[in-house]
């Protein structure tokens, strides 16, 4: 049986944690401002052709073939395997492009080349998706804030939403810093991070609310420490199972959802950290106290009956 050392003084580390969070946030924002996100085809618009060779192929050879045919701005990269090649072209749309490129590459090679996918996204559509995505993130945060203010209390909803914003910014910063392709599935993952991290934060907050009511001590910092310790083993177990499946997804899920898995992996790690340090920290900064939860909202009455 695994026993986790009880009574860790989490909040004792809160200054250090706050410093770390602020540094990471600044670094993320800085990277987003300087490097920006490396938007995928979904958001930039343009054309993309994916082909498979029978045997691994030199990227330089493919580039040379394309350059020779006048595709100067083609971006060539491997996609998962060494014989799987992804070609991105900024040019205007041509329905024959996939076939044209395929024939071009085939003529330069003896082995068979097959077309795996060919995508075109208009620049206007990409722009709209970008706006819609940002809007989606904001709407999600707002709705959550309203729900939490209703179910808990205003200070809790501020804490939770700031913790979520923290998580999302760090995930975006990570993608910006490493210049990983940011496409629609990664955006979906960023929204799922909101869901996941929130889950964690709510569990901690639920316990904090409960402990404020039943604990004799009224020092908020002790209440928070106690709550975090009580929920610690649950936090670890759930994070571990989730991380487990995400690692599997990153390794076996294939190239098309690699970015998705990475975004969630980062998100789960950051979300777990933030639900312990950031969410609690903000409550303390907002001077949360027992009085905030008393008188309890009428909704809580049936819950009180269930207490032994």
């Amino acid at each position: 049986m695994i026993h986790i050392q009880r009574q860790i003084n989490f909040m004792g580390l809160r200054k250090g944690a706050a410093a770390l969070s602020i540094i990471l946030l600044l670094a993320s924002i800085l990277s987003l401002a300087i490097n920006g996100l490396k938007f995928g085809l979904d958001f930039t618009g343009g054309s993309l052709v994916e082909v498979t060779y029978e045997r691994p192929i030199e990227l330089e050879a493919v580039r040379a073939t394309l350059r020779g045919a006048g595709y100067q701005d083609a971006v060539v990269q491997t996609f998962g395997a060494a014989n799987d090649i992804l070609i991105r072209l900024g040019e205007a749309h041509d329905p024959q492009l996939g076939q044209t490129i395929l024939q071009l590459l085939q003529s330069a090679e003896e082995q068979t080349v097959t077309l795996r996918r060919n995508e075109f996204v208009g620049s206007q559509v990409g722009e709209e998706l970008r706006e819609q995505g940002g809007l989606g993130l904001l709407v999600a945060l707002m709705m959550v804030m309203v729900y939490l203010a209703f179910r808990f209390q205003f200070k809790f909803s501020v804490g939770a939403v700031l913790a979520l914003a923290h998580d999302v910014i760090l995930v975006l910063g990570f993608f910006s810093f490493l210049q990983i392709d940011f496409d629609l599935t990664v955006l979906a993952a960023a929204l799922a991070v909101i869901g996941y991290s929130l889950n964690d934060t709510i569990v901690v907050y639920d316990r904090i609310r409960e402990n404020f009511r039943i604990m004799r001590v009224s020092e908020p910092i002790e209440v928070l420490n106690q709550s975090l310790n009580e929920t610690l083993s649950r936090t670890i177990v759930t994070s571990l199972t989730t991380l487990l499946v995400l690692v599997v997804l990153a390794f076996f899920g294939g190239e098309m959802i690699y970015g998705f898995a990475i975004a969630l992996l980062v998100g789960v790690v950051v979300g777990t950290y933030s639900s312990i340090y950031v969410a609690g920290n903000i409550l303390l900064m907002l001077n949360v106290s027992r009085e905030d939860l008393i008188p309890p909202p009428p909704k809580e009455e049936d819950e009180a009956e269930q207490l032994p």
Partner: peptide, 16 residues
């Protein structure tokens, strides 16, 4: 509480 909030995020994802 934990699941309803996750559901909110999922529904927004569905809508957009």
């Amino acid at each position: 509480d934990a699941n309803v909030t996750t559901l909110i995020a999922a529904v927004i994802l569905f809508a957009m």
